[in-house]
Design a protein around this nucleic acid. Structure first.
Lengths: 262, 262
DNA sequence: GAGTGGTCTAGACCACTGT
DNA sequence: CAGTGGTCTAGACCACTCC
């Protein structure tokens, strides 16, 4: 015989899938469910915890339990890098049309809410090793948050790093007021004579820290996809590195690898 | 004031990190912990559930709770595709030396336990769409399981598909007895005159189904990384597709994107 | 059979949200 | 304030593992 909390979860799951409970709807209160299923509160809560881990429902303290709305998928291709490179030398007029995110998602620029902050920090061990500079080197830290205007949570948390002395040549690159910068990072680097040769991306999945779960609106149990991106210029030097944190339940990454012809 | 179960989890976490409890060690029994922390069993269990979700401990029904051993990381690069392509035309002698997995992991072929099964199945909607063939087309389904000889669980679950009529030209390709095939899939395809042009990989993370969690030895709460890989030949046709399921807690994928020079 | 974790109960009390 | 979910207790009984 199946366990009680599983049977209850199955029943509720069926009702959600059948549309009996629509996205956004509030579930019956936990005490109501106690009566309906004839099981104790902890058992009911165990069933709800299961559904929450599956991302089917959302618990809101003091308000109730709700059926989660399916969220817009986030897609991201490595083709964007070549696309962005091609645009890095175009006129500002042309660059202003769309950014890489709109290119990926197919959305209009008006559908996105964009937030950027710049800061200067000293490189720790990890960053210093990546850039091949001494620890303590001053870096420009750029923090980005982007979300759909119709949704509450950002779909990515980005921290991007540059070596300050390398980019200080163009003071505009030190000021967040110039964001969103038409043409993106590759154009920014182009203004100081840097051309990218290749981009390396490392992908892994890990459980989110509580603050990350909160900021991205992740249901407990949902993984975070961490993408560490390193950009190399044509001299083989690391010129930019960023950490991109993406919600695992709505992100799809695509990588195309062209092969040399025989 | 912090919640009781969080304080208990923090304390146990510290002890594990401090090495007071070493990997593989058994934790004190739950009833012992009840006495030590002066809290009830459910509270203790809530704390342990937290640590389990973080992948720090492993619960074994009827045996006890144990500190998890860190598992060997699995690394995989898209550079393997180019490397495999270059080897596809080499002599069998050379191809036998090492496979792509050893290339990725840096391990010897003797450290790996390899298992392959072949089957013939009819294409469902999804596969048919990917290959651009009618649903019901007969496919060769190849199932691979690979693990380190020193560990209990495989580090990847792979299902690879080919169109049977396309590969039947070389009957050796229909027989699992020829696995592990020196030179891998690219060499197999080479024997029937197929050259790959590019490989597309889609990556996403999702919670594992119970059977997947069991087969990979995943702690509850750990995500599964799913990599869907599509190979295109030089005529633009899809010639192979595989689904690779990887444990999220030990996998790192790297993708290098070379950019065209200005 | 002894010892372990897994499920479940009935109920107290706290914390948050809305009116 | 009423209504909701969150934490915690004390204890019963079941299921699994190992000797």
């Amino acid at each position: 015989m199946a366990k009680a909390y599983e049977r209850i979860a199955d029943d509720l799951r069926d009702r959600i899938r059948a549309g009996e409970l629509a996205p956004g709807d509030q579930l019956p209160s936990e005490t109501t469910l106690v009566g309906r299923y004839g099981k104790s509160l902890p058992t009911i809560r165990q069933a709800l915890a299961l559904l929450q881990a599956e991302g089917l429902i959302e618990k809101q303290h003091g308000r109730g339990n709700f059926v989660r709305k399916p969220r817009t998928q986030v897609r991201r291709t490595n083709l964007r890098h070549e696309w962005e490179k091609a645009r890095a030398r175009e006129s500002e007029q042309e660059r202003k049309q769309t950014g890489a995110t709109e290119h990926d998602t197919g959305l209009d620029i008006d559908d996105l809410v964009f937030h950027a902050e710049y800061d200067q920090v000293e490189a720790g061990e990890e960053l210093a090793a990546i850039f091949g500079v001494p620890a303590g080197t001053v870096m420009v830290e750029r923090t980005y948050r982007t979300r759909y205007s119709a949704e509450d949570y950002p779909f990515s948390l980005v921290e991007s790093y540059l070596v300050r002395d390398m980019v200080a040549e163009n003071p505009a690159l030190l000021d967040a007021a110039n964001e969103p910068w038409p043409g993106g990072t590759q154009n920014q680097l182009h203004t100081i004579g840097i051309e990218l040769d290749r981009i390396e991306e490392r992908v892994l999945a890990r459980p989110p820290a509580p603050d990350e779960a909160e900021e991205l609106g992740l249901p407990p149990g949902t993984a975070l996809i961490v993408l560490a991106k390193t950009s190399y210029d044509t001299t083989g030097r690391v010129v930019e590195h960023s950490f991109v944190r993406l919600p695992g339940d709505r992100t799809e990454l695509t990588f195309v690898t062209p092969l040399e012809r025989w």
